[in-house]
Design a protein around this nucleic acid. Structure first.
Lengths: 256, 256
DNA sequence: CAGAATTTGCTCGATTATCGAACTGATGTT
DNA sequence: AACATCAGTTCGATAATCGAGCAAATTCTG
């Protein structure tokens, strides 16, 4: 292996890397996993996985129940630096709540993580019955969703390209757009319009509007969005929602 | 060192353990830390801390900005197994929201983590101006809070004792009860009453009511609680709130 | 219910990643 | 400008990690 391509390992901790892989094994919503399941999912040697699991159990992050391991509430410690520090709930939640009240629908704020968008804050509408299964930490793909496209459209071109070509876009519904040139056009339109509107490309019958959120320095950090049933709103409703989301986006962006 | 006391290390991964310590360094709400700060907080050798940090950066969990390291949204991956899996938001949030609506105040669900209670779900009251700085992942001590006492009162006695004597209880306000025998009495009262009521022992002027939540097998898993300004409610109000919280507790407990 | 098949727990020598003291350059302070 | 503190890197010694292999437990199956 030539050294210019493989850059001799950059001095990182291989063991820690493996340990993180164990925690990531729960990324699909698995509640409990056996040691072999973890070994398989992570691609680690069974003994290695086992030792890492024991470490997590000993530290209180996992509990064992008859050979199956489930995460404990302690894992929330690991994210405190992200959520707690920036007051993501304390400052963003109220902003979302106000927008949600004005719009009459649940409003979310999401950020990009690789090829996915992660819901970081969410203001439910207490009165309405919640149809969407969105919650903090939920992940949706970038390409077939409004949040994703709102973010993608304003990322630096090379990164946007990298993400689009990273994985062949799966077909979620019959409406999912998978042709990259078309997506490129849609992103250009999104960029021009300043918001994204996507219908039934991820979940059948569900539409979504999203407006990008920018940091004071101009970089896109995420998007605020509203999800609703297809056909629930007409053109005028949507335009009203976009206007309110723009204001919400400005408020959220200012707090970064 | 004799082997019965120190149990020869139980075959865990020391490196992974250290890596987790790095993530825990952000437990107080620090947004960004320097490599030396992390080394100091974790008690790790600076070079070791550095390698672990590099690992986290390379994996995308931390970003570097001029020598300071901040968590990225990716850390939410680490907790997905806990929040996503059990549908903590999908199933518990609606229950809390209903209770919140009936009670007219924000309602939270918290679970025990060592000597603290961790807020796991929270139903805000959209109409009211939120006074409490509570958010998912927030941590409060067990001893001087209603949630904490509701949980402590129903834990197995040896564990409750261990927690009470683990650390000398700090004085948060002038009202904070630090005398262990008195706390023991208060816990007995809580156990008898089936709920905890604490006034100004953690934050001046803030009172709280909490009802323990039990799993179907009878073990206490956490508590549902309401926070309000001292003097905001009279005896009758509180009794009404407790009644509603009991129902809420049963609903939440059933979903475990 | 026996026997096979799979899963799980654990051991131990070889290997290799980790450790950390020491040095150097960068940054900030009086 | 001189000093003090902080940050980045190197490298040999050491100790932790690895993983094949075996035994026990559990689950499947005919």
């Amino acid at each position: 292996m030539s050294e210019d391509t493989a850059t001799v390992g950059a001095e990182i901790s291989l063991t820690f890397q493996k340990g993180l892989r164990v925690l990531e094994a729960y990324l699909d919503g698995s509640v409990s996993l056996s040691s072999s399941e973890i070994a398989t999912r992570t691609g680690l040697n069974r003994s290695v996985a086992r030792r890492l699991i024991r470490t997590l159990v000993q530290a209180g992050y996992l509990t064992e129940d008859r050979g199956r391991y489930a995460m404990t509430v302690r894992v929330l410690r690991l994210t405190q630096g992200f959520t707690g520090g920036r007051g993501l709930a304390q400052v963003i939640q109220p902003i979302l709540r106000l927008a949600s009240h004005d719009i009459g629908d649940a409003v979310s704020f999401s950020m990009q993580d690789e090829t996915e968008a992660v819901y970081v804050a969410h203001a439910f509408m207490p009165s309405r019955f919640t149809l969407n299964r969105v919650t903090v930490g939920s992940r949706v793909p970038l390409l077939p969703t409004a949040v994703g496209r709102a973010i993608l459209a304003f990322l630096p071109e090379d990164e946007a390209d990298r993400i689009q070509t990273a994985v062949p876009p799966p077909l979620y519904t019959e409406q999912t757009e998978t042709r990259l040139p078309v997506i490129r056009t849609l992103l250009a339109e999104t960029r021009a319009a300043g918001y994204a509107y996507v219908q039934s490309e991820y979940v059948e019958g569900v539409s979504s509007l999203a407006v990008p959120v920018f940091r004071p320095d101009g970089a896109v950090v995420g998007a605020v969005s509203v999800i609703f049933s297809q056909g629930e709103h007409n053109d005028q409703d949507r335009s009203r929602i976009v206007t309110r989301l723009r204001q919400c986006s400005a408020d959220v962006g200012a707090s970064f």
